[in-house]
Amino acid sequence: MRRRRRRRRAFAGMTAAAVLLCTLFLAVKTLYPLLSEERKADTDITYDGASPSLSVNLDNLYSPHAILIDLDSGKAVAARGSQDRIYPASLTKIMTALLAVEETDNLDETVTLSTRIFPKLYAEEASMAGFQPGERVQLRDLLYGILLPSGAECCLAFAERIAGSEEAFVKLMNEKAKELGMDSTHFCNSTGLHDGNHYSTVEDMAVLLKHALKNADFREAFTSSQHSTLPSDLHPDGFTFYSTMFEYMSSAKVTGGEILGGKTGYTEEAGLCLASLAGINGKEYILVTAKADGTHDTEQFHILDAVNVYNQVGASSNDSQ
């Protein structure tokens, strides 16, 4: 008799546990899609129903990989090779700059640039903003130094300040990429210097830029054509640097609007890359292109592609009004 009671109690306990597990499973199953959809609504690029009134052709671009996004809706207007793996080169610095502003409480603070970060950058002929070893610099100037002249020393200064080392900072970069749903991206450094395991897609880069532009400090720097630094011990009068995109453009005007800002990138393996923002007929668009032939010394084919695409957007939206 006692054995039967013990068996009944054990069976009842197992049944209760099973019911509880089933309840928890159903709750998670119901809740997870909602959480997933909330994340997707904030970061993902969608292709369905995307601006049917616009007619944009990417087939004749110099860049084999391109994606045009309606920033307000997050919908892709047009795409070409957008999910193919690319090397992002200095487009990487968009992520570095985003983490810089998100992990910094006061951009008016100053830091001293460590002398140890420079020898490697000099050896690799990395692009620099112009700051010197041991110089005391305002963090805001470093942010502009990342996004305008593509300064590698500015990237490493933020990386060391935020995470203690570039290696630790790269972990934060990959965690942020995962959070944003950039499933085809992996970073190995903060600057975009070539590494076979450092890759992305133009779609992922569009997701990143879409998110970053929500930050006011990032947007202000990204859309600036030039910036003058505060005086420092090694630059008593300060100095001015310029956007690597705007310096190649005689005019930012396009049909119906203008190109507001952009971040260029180049390595031999990556080709010419560009992530840009334009305002056209009251709307904003992101265009990310990659792997155009050319170098810093040739025609800037990635910028020509941007002008081409944004002119198409302006002409098409004018026709539809």
Rank of each mutant, 00 (worst) to 15 (best):
R5W: 12
R9H: 08
F11H: 10
M14N: 02
L20Q: 07
L26D: 06
P33S: 05
S36I: 02
T43D: 09
A50K: 07
A50T: 15
N60Y: 08
Y62A: 10
L71E: 09
D72Q: 12
K75W: 14
V77H: 01
A78N: 10
Q83W: 11
Q83V: 14
R85E: 09
I86H: 10
A89W: 11
S90Y: 00
M95F: 06
D105P: 01
T110N: 01
T110S: 11
K120N: 15
L121Q: 10
L121T: 08
P133F: 15
G134M: 13
Y144C: 04
I146V: 14
P149K: 00
A152Q: 05
R161Q: 07
E167C: 09
E167S: 08
F169Q: 01
V170C: 00
E175K: 14
A177Y: 01
L180K: 01
T185M: 04
Y199I: 07
L209C: 09
N215I: 08
E220T: 14
A221E: 09
S224L: 04
S225A: 15
H227D: 02
S232W: 04
Y242N: 13
Y248P: 01
G262M: 11
E268F: 09
L274S: 09
A275L: 15
G279Y: 07
I280S: 04
G282I: 12
T289Y: 05
D293P: 01
T295M: 08
D297Y: 11
F301D: 06
V307R: 06
V309Q: 07
N311I: 01
Q312L: 10
V313W: 05
